[in-house]
Amino acid sequence: MADVKSQVSLTRPNSKLREQAIKVSLMASSMIAVLVTIGIVFSLAVEALRFFSEVNVFDFLFGSEWSPQTAMRADQVASKGAFGALPLLAGTFLISIIALMVAAPFGIYSAVYLAEYASSKRRAVLKPALEILAGVPTVVYGFFAAIVIAPAIRGWGQAIGLDIASESALAAGLVMGVMIIPLVSSISDDVITAVPSALREGSVGLGATKSETIRRVVLPAALPGIAGGLMLAASRAVGETMIVVMAAGLAANLTFNPLEAVTTVTVQIVMLLTGDQEFDSTKTLAAFALGLALFVITLVFNIIGNMIVNRFKEAYD
């Protein structure tokens, strides 16, 4: 026995160290994801805190007047109301709601067709084709909204005697809605497919037609999941930048009229940070405060949306 032991070594001292080094570097790589999150939270929070030392948090969140230009001048930095983000938040939600009103019917009906009616061959073609809509860069949508959709809407408005702003919330919202159709459709598709076939059989077994089964059993059962999916889509819409930068307005306008120009959180971040200015000005700090608000809003939407979708899927597992 002693001889055997001297010949067969059960440990490999040289490679142990290397293995350990590799494992550490693997772990370090995955830690980068955490670092990024920490980086985001810290950089946003630090700059936002500096901003809030100059502008009251409540004035920022509930102030109804946004005009950062006036605050450029040193004597007006402390002037209240110039950094009221309410019109931006309202504009953001107005455009997002318009987008959802487009994306929800198109996305859900597309999902119903693809999941319940389309043959597998047709589905294999149509589903990726629909995904292309999500792959088109947002700057392209923005350009299209600005030069085609907005003038067209304005033209129709004139034809029926309506005065529509050339950078209306409607134009930006419609195009953004088209962009998120694939997102709504793919989540709805997942959710509809997750509805157990036993429910479909139960309905069909009673003599219901396919559409009756879908409308009265499958869709009501899928509703929570679809609602979660819409939350995720709303988060996308709220964080979307280029479409609104190019097609929505710049002036803060507290309105819920989709025919008027509104501005959004992302538009103002871009406006505050492009061009030449001192980094420490209240203006640039305001951009980080807006960034923080945007981060928190989208995070909350995503967490709730994912929770609903996951709970739904587990319920039928």
């Binding site: 994801a33 980086g39 985001i40 996308r236 940070l273 945007l294 981060f295 989208t298 995070l299 967490i303």
Partner: peptide, 21 residues
């Protein structure tokens, strides 16, 4: 959870991170 949430952070936020850091 962290990675999944990062995937849904609006892209403009990454720009802010780049600017600040």
């Amino acid at each position: 959870v962290n990675i999944n949430n990062l995937a849904t952070v609006p892209s403009i936020i990454f720009g802010l991170l780049g600017l600040a850091v």
